[in-house]
Design a protein around this nucleic acid. Structure first.
Lengths: 335, 335
DNA sequence: CTGAAAGCGCTTACAG
DNA sequence: CTGAAAGCGCTTACAG
């Protein structure tokens, strides 16, 4: 096993009494081969258990049938769902997916992109906490199509798929307003740009649309973690006029906010309503279950896969796409 | 971009006034190259932005520096954690990981293994709901090292890493007995073998060790899902003498059991104690938080990566290893 | 310390 | 309908 010489296409050819060219053509179907010859070749293939060596094909055809998925943290439940959706659509046409984990660190992100370029992946789906075109320039320079999840705008060589974070912020806020809340807080991420900032912007829109005055003190920043949510809600509740409802930049943060409510023996949603974004698996499992806004990550993975598949057919010819995912509220018990 | 001829090793060699052989040696370090030449070559490499083409290397060296991770469902939180641990140890030495999702279906599992063999991955980590050596025979036949997660016994070509499910069952049961429970139910998986069956076996051991008579009616089968846990606990609670505590074959099932308790307005753990296995992320987030038994999946991923890395150095020379992971109880609020 | 040449295992013009 | 030959981009005996 693994010792004797590997059987290759010329072994098959010899045994079938044809040339390697012909064997290649019976498997590719790219030119007519007589029935009789086909049958003979296939029989030998089975007999010898030969299948074309993908690495050799890749070298010759300049296609690896591999798509890279680069994410900040594969244990963040959002990304496995994206991976699943991606696999859903790319497996059938014979692509495999390679994963890269970056911790969201800029250096690791660039290194991962470079690595994947070196490996000649056919396409890259890149997701960062803040996805910027500059993160993937090595791929673009190499002519490798990339799909940027959460990017701001499509550019040549870069298709973008993002959830409509502004709309998400609006939808969530309107939902809360619709349930009678007027003093609504927001626990956002550590910095002032990217999707979290768009959600805050949507929140402000919805507020002004409802004639509610925006109050800067009701927006607090925190880490993207349970601890961030915990601290965030505690901070909000220390205000002279604390909010009666709070929007959290993602579900994990929202779960942290629920922790804070529990620590203060507040009832949710009666004393304080809590709402998240993302609809992670735990959102439905916790108690009270978490009202949140879903971006449907598996569907996003499918969409991103489809965009890339199309790109791999058309080439770079067609215009870069920007797909916006409209989120929706998933009403549960926390708000 | 992507148009002009790709720069290759001979371009670098020509520009540096050396042979491709020498360029190859300055990057591999496998034979001495004069300082002056090295400097010149490296300068040209930077100038031209050249890096060796991995596909060509793979073909020539018969090594792809790729490890396949084949799992039933990447959205099951256990597996991303394993993936993370695997990446933790294999990234540094330059391996990438390719993921395969099988839905736990036998046909898909074999197809995935075959695919990976065709792609000449250097090693495979295979996890099925019930992992059997026969699932990976295509890889073994091709001489590709495989690590079977959850397998029964190591064999030539197959290292096995499993959590000690028997011990897990014992530990969990002893924990419950230690908290005063004597009538303890068990919601297990749909079939009578594999890890779930071992956990039941451990449960029986611990019972008899404590002088508690085993009662067959207290063990019910169900799907590996929240619905399975829901139905399972309802079934147990319909017994003439229902249990006061219940062990569930995994955390998702346990969360289903908590649903059932809630439907019946039972207090947990006062009326019914619930315990799971795995310690998924949601276990800590739900309320009451779930007492469970942890197998530390990220650590398992690391261990499996290390086994494979060792195997890739030693070759098949050393004996196949069987690594047993001892789990531990994670006490929380549900039991 | 350095090079010329063969070869990893395929596919694809080119030719018939 | 079929084949001989070149070549994808490297690495590694072999030779000096």
């Amino acid at each position: 096993m693994g010792t004797g010489k590997r059987v290759d296409i010329s072994d098959v050819a010899a045994r079938a009494g044809v040339s390697p060219t012909t064997v290649s053509h019976v498997i590719s179907g790219r030119r007519p081969v007589s029935e009789a010859t086909q049958a003979r070749v296939r029989a030998v293939m089975n007999e010898l258990g030969w299948e074309p060596h993908q690495v050799a094909r890749s070298l010759r055809m300049r296609r690896t049938h591999t798509i890279a998925l680069i994410v900040p943290d594969i244990t963040n439940p959002f990304y496995p769902a994206v991976a699943r959706g991606l696999l859903d659509v790319v497996s059938e046409p014979g692509y495999q997916v390679l994963i890269g984990n970056t911790e969201g660190e800029s250096a690791a992100e660039r290194a991962a992109v470079t690595q994947m370029v070196t490996r000649s992946v056919d396409a890259i789906v890149f997701a960062g906490y803040y996805s910027k075109a500059s993160d993937v320039e090595a791929a673009v320079a190499a002519g490798i199509p990339v799909a940027l999840m959460g990017g701001r705008r499509a550019e040549p060589g870069i298709d973008v798929l993002s959830s409509d974070d502004l709309a998400a912020g609006e939808i969530a806020t309107r939902y809360l307003i619709g349930r009678g809340y007027r003093r609504i807080g927001f626990i956002t991420g550590p910095s002032g740009y990217g999707p979290p900032a768009d959600r805050v912007k949507g929140y402000r829109h919805a507020l002004s649309e409802a004639g509610i005055r925006f109050s800067r003190e009701l927006v607090v920043r925190g880490e993207f973690s349970r601890a961030g949510g915990l601290q965030g809600l505690h901070a909000l509740l220390q205000l002279t006029k604390p909010p009666r409802a709070v929007l959290c930049t993602n579900d994990v943060v929202a779960i942290g906010a629920l922790d804070a409510a529990r620590e203060r023996a507040l009832r949710v949603p009666d004393d304080i309503a809590v709402m998240g974004f993302d609809d992670i698996e735990a959102a439905a499992m916790i108690s009270p279950s978490l009202t949140t806004v879903s971006g449907d990550p598996r569907e996003q993975g499918r969409a991103v896969g489809q965009v890339l598949l199309d790109r791999l057919e058309d080439g770079a010819s067609s215009r870069p796409q920007h797909i916006l995912f409209s989120p929706s509220v998933v009403p549960r018990d926390s708000a």
